[in-house]
Design a protein around this nucleic acid. Structure first.
Lengths: 97, 97
DNA sequence: GTCGATCAGTTCGCTCTTGTTCATCGGGAT
DNA sequence: ATCCCGATGAACAAGAGCGAACTGATCGAC
């Protein structure tokens, strides 16, 4: 499923226009970008997901074409964590809304 | 940041009412739940994130209070993957929109 | 304002992910 | 319709996350 299909589905089920649905998703993405850009806060949507910036240690990577090892420097990364409700649905312990 | 704060921010920046913003986020969550409940499809929001159901092997867990080991059966889990744009923003390689 | 649901933190052995480069193909902004 | 950007997959060593059970704190639906 891609973005267009998602917007169609959300618009159908909520009655919100596709244009506004798209604006809200874009707004959500921009807030997520601000969260991971600054790292000072964490966004938690209870039962759904959380989004935060985390730090990753330096380590060894590899060029898949040549097999040469490459030093990957320490840097910031994105951590997306599913919430309990979403996990329970994936496990079959619970039904989607 | 929690859900209320997120809705305020999105509503402010997009001009969409808080009520509609909340409906769209709820709709997005419900679609994500359908994706991880069935496992047949994967939702990809290019540059932002993707959401899918994955399978996890059985393994050993532990009760942190008693230290007793517990067998955790194989089951389905949720995989949330950040997209390239979000990752680049976390690394500082790129500015948020 | 209430109260049920969820989060965060705890241990630890093992599973899973990470990031590198690059060609190809699809998405999606315009 | 066009075309630039991002997803995908390849190898792999090492980093990071997972999930159990439980509890106090917080969230958010009503």
């Amino acid at each position: 499923m891609n973005k267009s299909e998602l917007i169609d589905k959300i618009s159908e089920s909520t009655g919100v226009s596709k244009a506004d649905t798209e604006r809200v998703l874009k707004g959500f993405e921009e807030v997520a970008q601000q969260i991971v850009a600054t790292g000072g806060d964490k966004l938690t949507l209870t039962g759904f997901m959380s989004i935060e910036q985390v730090h990753r240690k330096a380590r060894t990577g590899r060029n898949p074409q040549t097999g040469a090892t490459i030093q990957v420097p320490a840097s910031n990364a994105v951590k997306l964590t599913p919430g309990a409700t979403l996990k329970d649905i994936a496990k079959g312990k619970r039904q989607p809304s």
